[in-house]
Write a protein that binds this DNA or RNA. Structure first.
Length: 657
DNA sequence: GCAAGGTC
């Protein structure tokens, strides 16, 4: 064997990474590509004479001192998870009691396309002596690595000691070569953690889904075609919507009173932040906020108001302050943030967004759209990308050029956000095109948003001058704030989505101690307004904050609860629960189980984290959580009439009409 | 006919 090259199978998580890896292997000194890529269930690349420390002497994750050796690299990819867990025959809907699903056996299957991939990998594995598992370096990637390993070992057991796991977070030559010199092993704890979550979700989800569905079918009409699913993510997602709705329902409007003060001042030479344009003789009105805000006591407000009226001739400026304010540029774009912004700015729902982003990604317009990362790695080359935008970016050419002009004095390295999945970079444009040439309007507006966001990240903070004026009338203080934008910077490119409100412009330079004459001093009555239904952006933020779903699945959960007819979205991207959604949440709540709360999910995640960290065993947490959920399940079934009651308030029972 | 997690 020592004279022949070692054949190594390289498997990535997705085709784009396999392609990029092959590109790196191509570029390594002395390497020769064997023909073009061939196409089986996935693209397969082959390179000979790829030199790095001998693979058989690696595997401890330390930098290797093994001698350099030539390897033949066979490079391909899966497409996400390969296999799926399910209950075997004999545990179908009508074949068993749903309660059995907490302990029923499970089997692994390779469905559809995955079957072809499984066979392809097995065949490749037969002719290789080592496997490098280039799956994303996140927890789910570790589990997929385990699936790939299993499939390869089925066809070639001798590979067992030669399964390697590199550490990498971008497919850049330096990083890949470094990874090839310090190959590690699959982290079994991560695999256990993912499998624990997966198994729990399946058992609990299937048991409750079957219970609910069968119960409603039996007791109510109109459910024969419908699956009434339960899931540890979809239910809390629904819960957030129901919770907001309940606050709207129980809302009682209250009256409040406040004192409004306005003064009239001459318009200064410069009008707001726009242009210098003297307008002699014109005046404008400045609005003050009462320091007490609003009071819910009319008489009390009246007393204070009358004291103001008595002292209105002595209204005095007691403070005038100017402070420099900045409006921070955004942090690099993650999926969740893109979803929120697309909903807020473009009225594009998360599911539509992800489909369009996927297309943009596949056509090379943007980087990988499923990422938690909000920080650029140091190696990221901003200049070439901005140059590309300056040359070819259509309406963004001018701004991109500005960032590069004057020795780059307008450019600033992006801030770092809080999150980093260590597997993918933030979302950026990959190539610059004139957005007008993208035919699909949804894709076009998303591409524009991504370009705007990217350029904003590379810009300086906006700078403004805030002035605060405090006027005292008798015992009462009133505050006015004004803002003048001094430098727009990133706001220039993020127009019209991001702005900095300068309603009052800059305030006049009134002297402290001077008297002013109120133009308006009135007592106003107002009424508190009910909360609005939850917007999609708010829902995404809640899910993200409570750990419901992931960047890649949040949109799917939101779609699921609509498909299951638990909630609907209106034209304003706001969600209302359906009668069924409300009834389900109410039903479980009336039993004392807050299944709509994110707490259960949080607990499962926390336990899985412990497994991943190696501080708990998979079996230990599985037993505990399954037993707990089984208890809730048994109790819910025993009290199913409470669920019936909640549903019965909104649907008609079988035989009743 | 059930989940959630990858990816297309």
């Amino acid at each position: 064997m020592s004279n022949r090259e070692i054949r190594v199978l390289n498997v990535a998580e997705k085709p784009s990474v396999a392609r990029a890896l092959a590109g790196v292997f191509s570029g390594m000194q002395g390497s020769r590509q064997h023909g073009g890529p061939r196409r089986e269930a996935a693209q397969i690349f082959e390179h000979h004479n790829v030199r790095f420390p001998e693979i058989f002497r690696q595997g401890n994750g330390q930098r290797s001192n093994a001698p350099i050796k030539a390897h033949t690299m066979i490079t391909t990819s899966v497409r996400g998870h390969l296999s799926n867990r399910d209950f075997p025959d004999g545990f179908g809907w009508s074949a068993c009691d749903p309660g059995e699903l907490f302990h029923a056996p499970l089997e692994i299957s390779y469905k559809g396309d995955m079957n072809a991939l499984q066979r392809m990998l097995g065949n490749l594995a037969r002719n290789c002596q080592a496997v490098i598992l280039w799956l994303d370096c996140d927890r789910e990637g570790e589990a997929i690595a385990d699936e790939v390993r299993t499939v390869c070992l089925e066809k070639n057991q001798r590979l067992s000691p030669h399964m390697f796991r590199p550490k990498f977070s971008t497919v850049l030559p330096g990083e890949i070569q470094r990874a090839l010199q310090s190959l590690g092993r699959v982290n079994e704890n991560f695999v256990d953690a993912v499998n624990a979550r997966s198994e729990l979700d399946l058992r609990v989800g299937a048991a409750f889904s079957r219970f609910q569905t069968l119960r409603l079918q039996k007791k109510f009409s109109g459910f024969s075609e419908q699956v009434v699913s339960y899931g540890p993510c979809q239910f809390p997602t629904l819960g957030f919507i129901v919770e907001r709705w309940a606050r709207m329902e129980t809302f009682v409007s209250e009256k409040f009173w406040s004192i409004e003060l306005r003064i009239t001042v001459p318009v200064p030479g410069a009008d707001n932040d726009q242009n210098v344009n003297p307008q002699p003789g014109r005046t404008r009105s400045i609005e003050f906020t009462w320091k007490r805000g609003r009071l819910y006591d009319r008489l009390m407000t009246l007393v204070l108001y009358e004291s103001c009226m008595d002292a209105r001739d002595q209204a005095t400026v007691i403070d005038l302050r100017g402070t420099q304010k900045k409006k921070w540029r955004p942090v690099p774009l993650s999926t969740v943030e893109l979803q929120k912004r697309a909903s807020r700015f473009l009225r594009i729902g998360s599911e539509t967004l992800m489909a369009a982003a996927e297309s943009l990604y596949n056509n090379g317009y943007i980087s990988y759209p499923r990422t938690e990362t909000e920080v650029f790695r140091q190696e990221f080359q901003h200049r070439p990308l901005i140059q590309d935008l300056a040359g070819n970016g259509g309406e963004f050419r001018q701004y991109a050029s500005k960032l590069l002009s004057n020795n780059g004095q307008h450019f600033q390295n992006p801030r770092a956000g809080r999150n980093d999945d260590k597997a993918h970079p933030p979302i950026t444009p990959c190539k610059a095109v004139d957005p007008a040439t993208i035919p699909d309007t949804t894709q076009r507006s998303i591409y524009k948003l991504i370009v705007q966001h990217y350029l904003a990240c590379c810009s300086k903070d906006a700078v403004g001058k805030e002035t605060q004026l405090i006027v005292r009338i008798g015992t009462e203080d009133f505050t006015a704030k004004g803002l003048m934008i001094v430098e727009r910077n990133w706001l220039e490119v993020y127009h019209p989505h991001e702005r900095w409100s300068t309603q009052q412009g800059e305030l006049p330079e009134l002297e402290i101690g001077s008297r002013i004459v109120p133009s308006t001093l009135t007592m106003k009555e107002g009424e508190t307004t009910p909360p609005q239904p939850l917007t999609e952006a708010e829902l995404i933020a809640l899910m993200d904050r409570h750990g419901i779903g992931t960047d890649a699945t949040i949109a799917a959960h939101i779609t699921t609860i609509q498909e299951r007819q638990y909630a609907t979205k209106d034209a304003g991207q706001r969600f209302l629960p359906s009668p069924l959604g409300i009834a389900l949440v109410e039903g479980y709540n009336s039993m004392g189980y807050q299944l709509n709360k994110p707490d259960l999910r949080r607990e499962v995640e926390a336990e899985c984290n412990q497994v991943a960290a190696g501080t708990k065993q998979k079996a230990e947490i599985m037993n505990r959580i399954l037993e707990k959920m089984r208890q809730i399940f048994m109790a819910a079934r025993a009290e199913a009439t409470k669920l019936d009651a909640a549903v019965g308030r909104r649907f008609s029972r079988v035989g009743v009409g």
